[in-house]
């Protein structure tokens, strides 16, 4: 079962994600299998709401590594800046191992505020079937798993009117 509780110790953070975005991440991972798929779901700064799904190209094109193209990376961050957004979910797939951050994932995690989502396609590859979908925060080399709650739609932003 996903979310078996490994490392769920001090932080009771939860990733709340809507069904359509969850499905889009899983679909991307299946489609790109056996290459690792990667992308982000960004949202308004400070809201922790994954609202805008962005598939990224894995410039490494590898079954064991992913990296955004440097030009794509700059464009992504410029767009977020213009829209007052930040990375809420940073996802990628593992295609032959479990959905748990590798040493590489931990060492390269550069967004302490983000939910790092890992999807494993090792069981069914390009085909339908359950996938492991797990979320973590990674801060200063420490991995903490968090619960994933799938909702129909993420509740609208609470802005004072």
């Amino acid at each position: 079962m996903p979310g078996s509780g490994i490392g769920r110790n001090t932080l009771d953070r939860v990733l709340q994600i809507d069904q359509a975005t969850y499905d889009a991440i899983v679909e991307h991972a299946r489609r790109d299998h056996p290459v690792e798929a990667c992308g982000m779901v960004v949202g308004p700064i400070g809201t922790d709401r994954p609202e805008r799904f962005i598939e990224m190209v894995n410039a490494a094109g590898s079954p064991t590594f992913y990296e955004y193209d440097s030009t794509d990376l700059l464009q992504l961050y410029r767009d977020m800046d213009d829209r007052d957004e930040e990375p809420v979910v940073i996802y990628h797939s593992h295609t032959a191992t479990e959905a748990y951050p590798s040493v590489t994932d931990i060492n390269l995690a550069g967004e302490p505020g983000a939910h790092y989502v890992l999807v494993s396609t090792q069981a069914h590859g390009n085909n339908d079937g359950p996938v492991e979908f797990r979320s973590y925060r990674i801060i200063d080399g420490t991995v903490t798993e968090e619960e994933v709650t799938i909702v129909d739609a993420v509740a609208p932003s609470e802005e004072s009117s």
Partner: peptide, 12 residues
């Protein structure tokens, strides 16, 4: 000048 950490990782 813009500095950005790579977004990278993977199973290897």
């Amino acid at each position: 000048v813009v500095i950005l950490p790579a977004v990278a990782g993977g199973a290897r």
